[in-house]
Design a protein around this nucleic acid. Structure first.
Length: 497
RNA sequence: GGCGAUAUCGUCUAAGGGUUAGGACGUGGCCCUCUCAAGGCCAAAAUCCGGGUUCGAAUCCCGGUAUCGCUACCA
């Protein structure tokens, strides 16, 4: 089968941190594109920076992608296992004259003015801000023009050399970006960047191009922070005798303060959203709409629809702010609108996590489980809601919430009335919504109280909470025996001060 | 500092020369009600500023401003 026309995309995180929402969104776009176009997505771990690299984080990134439901078709490949290829390609460029050896000390370039102490201080206000020299010229490495004799001398001395790419002095480099359109950059603006460090490890620019070429990547979909460096890579592709792939840079995701999303904005790792009880599909829907629009007013888009409708043309060019309330809204929508059979496995997992699954009616009776979840879900916002305030549906082991007691158990006639209610309910020949309703209202009018008083008090008695689903539906789910015994069990607590 | 990109309600966005500038989140109000949600209805809320081009500009052009990105032997 001829697959030459099928796109190949990749997600290429570097294990310097967990999988954050920006990376997740990039991964999602790649995945949606691959699925839409019946292409192939591969995963590549960019771990060429030995100092920042933390191998133990790879598992977390993989786990984050799995939770998101993003499946790659090839990989993961590790750049750390492909070093020979980068070295030989660098050598090729050296031989062809596209690159040159640089004998300068790394420190004379590295972080020359960069690394402004990582997001710490703002320089204080005031006028006298004739600050330190922030000026920076393009790197014009003297080694580029070094004579052969000098070069040989350095080699003899064993001076460690980096390999730099020699940017053409004149002309411009152009490329097409599927999102930002056609781009042109003057070569004079581009500095001779390093391809291979003096320690023999490749830089990002080299490894990314070599790999994308070797892996036959057709579409590079990545964050817009790479847009400015793309001309370097285009030049590199050409120097390697290849045509560049199609680029598609997607806008960045910012925090509410419009700065790059980072730890101090709170949850930025995908796993924290998993822990918080978000549904993966809701998260995908939310993420997909951050920087992409289907073109109409559709918002609730299940993953299958995203895969049908995603296109690079719909990607925005404007950075987007991560809007937590909207994410929560999506989660609520999914909890309530998902076909019940799609939701059940997620709830079952949550019950297992809370140790409420084994031996429960939920595990034993699928039909009952579905009815119970359906009753509870209109009031849920997170998966945890099934094991916190609604745990009374899945176990007898729950407490009477103090606020609920204070609010609905005030009336001192309640113990007597609920005792009678328990008897009346236990004696019902049939157990359904209307029978329970009638029994309770009959008692209320006989006692001369409003039905609401009994309803609210009973809800607390059988579920322990002031906030729970409507009473009679809850009774039906719980069953006659359990309801009667729970009411009786509550009586002592009810009469306690 | 240099280079570049971007700019529509507070937020995500639609409208790619002609609309009362639409939808959604959030906010406020009303309805529903057995608690609390959900839901329904209503409301306030935007074309960054200034110049052009045009009969007509959110849309095209220029300038300014702001924001973001890049400017590393990080990715």
């Amino acid at each position: 089968m001829d697959r030459t026309n099928q796109p190949r995309v990749r997600f290429a995180p570097s294990p310097t941190g967990y999988l954050h929402v920006g990376g997740a969104r990039t991964a999602l776009f790649n995945w949606l594109y691959a699925r839409r176009e019946r292409g192939t997505m591969l995963l590549r771990i960019e771990d060429t920076d030995v100092e920042r690299n933390r191998p133990e984080l790879v598992d977390g990134i993989l786990a984050g992608l799995k939770w998101l439901g993003i499946e790659w078709d090839e990989g993961p490949y590790f750049q750390s296992q492909r070093l020979d290829m980068y070295r030989s390609e660098a050598k090729r460029l050296l031989v062809s004259g596209a690159a040159y050896a640089c004998y300068c000390k790394a420190s004379s370039y590295a972080g020359a003015d960069a690394a402004p102490a990582a997001d710490s201080e703002e320089e204080q206000e005031g006028e006298g801000d004739d600050e330190g020299p922030k000026t920076r010229k393009n790197v014009a490495c003297p080694c580029r023009e070094m004579s052969e004799a000098d070069r040989a001398a350095r080699e003899r001395e064993g001076v460690p050399a980096a390999i730099r790419f020699g940017i053409p002095r004149i002309g411009a480099t152009t490329f097409e970006d599927a999102v930002f359109g056609s781009r042109e950059v003057q070569n004079a603006e581009i500095e001779d960047f390093v391809l291979l460090r003096s320690n023999g490890l490749p830089t990002y620019q080299l490894s990314v191009v070599v790999d994308d070429l070797d892996m036959r990547i057709t579409h590079v979909i990545r964050g817009a922070d790479h847009l400015s460096n793309t001309p370097k890579q285009v030049l590199l592709y050409r120097a390697l005798g290849a045509e560049p792939p199609i680029f598609a840079h997607v806008p960045l995701i910012l925090g509410p303060d419009r700065t790059r999303l980072s730890k101090r904005h709170g949850a930025t790792s995908v796993s924290s959203y998993a822990d918080e009880g978000f549904l993966p599909e809701a998260f995908r829907n939310f993420l997909a709409l951050l920087g992409w629009s289907p073109g109409d007013d559709s918002e609730f888009l299940r993953t299958s629809e995203l895969m049908e409708r995603f296109s690079l043309a719909g990607v925005s060019r404007t950075n987007a702010i991560f809007d937590r309330p909207k994410l929560e809204w999506f989660n609520t929508q999914y909890l309530q609108k998902l076909p019940i059979e799609d939701l059940l496995p997620c709830v079952a997992d949550e019950l297992r996590r809370a140790n409420l699954w084994n031996g429960s009616q939920a595990a034993a009776d699928p039909g009952w489980f579905a009815r119970a979840v359906d009753l509870i879900r209109p009031r849920t916002r997170f998966l945890q809601d099934f094991t916190t305030w609604s745990r009374g549906f899945f176990t007898d082991d729950f407490d009477f919430e103090p606020e609920a007691r204070a609010k609905f158990w005030k009336d001192e006639r309640l113990p007597g009335m609920l005792g009678k209610l328990a008897d009346a309910l236990a004696a019902l020949p049939e157990w359904n919504h209307d029978a329970c309703d009638a029994a309770l209202r009959q008692l209320a009018s006989a006692e001369g109280v409003k039905a609401g008083l009994l309803i609210n008090a009973t809800r607390v008695a059988i579920l322990g909470r002031a906030v729970a689903p409507p009473l009679f539906e809850s009774m039906v789910i719980l069953g006659q025996d359990r309801v009667a015994s729970r009411i009786r069990r509550a009586l002592p607590a009810l009469s306690a001060p």
